[in-house]
């Protein structure tokens, strides 16, 4: 009897593992396809052969210029920002056990935005400094929200309310910065604020790439413990997870990725919010779906950027496309949660 149950469990686990593998391979294929598309498409469409050659052969003239100086940085910025937003958003949602508890709603991205905007508009610093300040501001925002929302018991509702309050203040600062900023910097700042890959340059993207390369593996390694955290504080402690340290490490990694991505591409709306639930839907909860969330994030950003560039008469920055996709989903999620009485 117990043997047959064991067999069943094993079979189920194998099935889930297969499904996980299959879906992730599929997602990787989609990402690759989008990457190729990002390099090929533009004002002029180059065939794959030329694109590949231009990457290692600088003598190709116009092709090299278009691909290596414009499209490749754009691709890299979008790809890494997508991974960063997707993984970080998923981490927050899993840790707080609520899809609404994502960095967009809690105002963490807004904190980073204020710092980055300050650097870009007022101090006119370079990208690395801006990223650094964005990380610091993001962490500060988290700490402030946590301290204000923490009473004897933890309540997700209070956290969200406090986050919204903080966000209202930060948004006022952003409006102010936009008014006092240099007139000729304003259009760029506005485009950046809505999340844009326009004007991405390789040197400015490097901090983002490094951060993702360092933090993403850490988050994946901690992913198991994250799943245990999702079971609740007591179960996690009894399973031997040092909850506070794990949580701290997770938060620092997630905020670092979020903040650096925000500093380089602007707060691309709703990617952090959408990736986790989509990944959950695809591979099912309770499995290492942080990788999936990262891939989904990258797919969302790249696909939205392609759409924004070519689908409409005018070129829209990527954040507007993701905003238009994400906002209705947020509303639907709210309606569903309200119906079920989960709020």
């Amino acid at each position: 009897m117990s043997k047959s149950i064991m067999v069943m469990i094993k079979r189920g686990r194998n099935k889930r593992r297969q499904r996980w593998l299959l879906i992730n391979v599929l997602l990787v294929l989609i990402v690759s396809g989008l990457c190729v598309g990002m390099l090929m498409l533009g004002n002029t469409i180059y065939p794959v052969r030329d694109v590949v050659r231009s990457l290692y052969d600088p003598s190709m003239g116009g092709v090299s210029f278009a691909v290596a100086t414009i499209r490749l940085p754009r691709l890299l910025a979008g790809f890494f920002a997508g991974i960063a937003f997707g993984m970080a958003g998923h981490t927050f949602q899993t840790m707080l056990r609520n899809p609404l508890a994502n960095p967009d709603v809690l105002g963490i991205t807004t904190g980073s935005s204020v710092a980055a905007l300050f650097c870009l508009l007022i101090f006119q610093t370079n990208q690395t400094t801006a990223s650094l300040y964005a990380v610091i501001a993001g962490l500060l925002t988290v700490i402030v929200i946590y301290l204000l929302a923490w009473r004897k018991t933890f309540s997700i509702g209070r956290l969200i309310l406090v986050g919204l309050g903080i966000q209202a203040m930060l948004n006022a600062v952003i409006s102010y910065l936009l008014l006092v900023g240099n007139q000729q910097d304003i259009p760029a700042a506005l485009r950046w604020l809505s999340g844009s890959l326009n004007g991405a340059q390789l040197p400015a993207t490097l901090p983002l790439i490094w951060t993702v390369v360092i933090c993403a593996p850490l988050l994946i390694l901690l992913g198991n413990r994250l799943n245990i955290l999702e079971l609740g504080e007591e179960s996690a402690i009894s399973l031997g997870v040092k909850t506070n340290r794990t949580r701290l490490l997770l938060i620092v990694c997630a905020v670092a990725m979020l903040a650096v991505a925000t500093a380089s591409t602007g707060p691309i709306a709703f990617v952090a919010f959408l990736s986790g639930p989509i990944a959950q839907r695809l591979v099912g909860g309770g499995y290492a779906n942080i990788v999936t969330a990262g891939l989904i994030g990258a797919i969302l950003v790249l696909a939205a950027d392609l759409l924004g560039q070519f689908a409409f008469g005018v070129r829209y920055p990527v954040g507007i496309v993701t905003g238009m996709l994400g906002a209705p989903y947020l509303l639907i999620l709210l309606i569903k949660m309200n119906r079920r009485g989960r709020l």
Binding site: D104, V105, I160, G323, A327, L331, L334
Partner: peptide, 10 residues
């Protein structure tokens, strides 16, 4: 409030 914030974002 959440409905307001979500609608605002949308």
């Amino acid at each position: 409030i959440l409905a307001g914030a979500a609608t605002s974002a949308a």
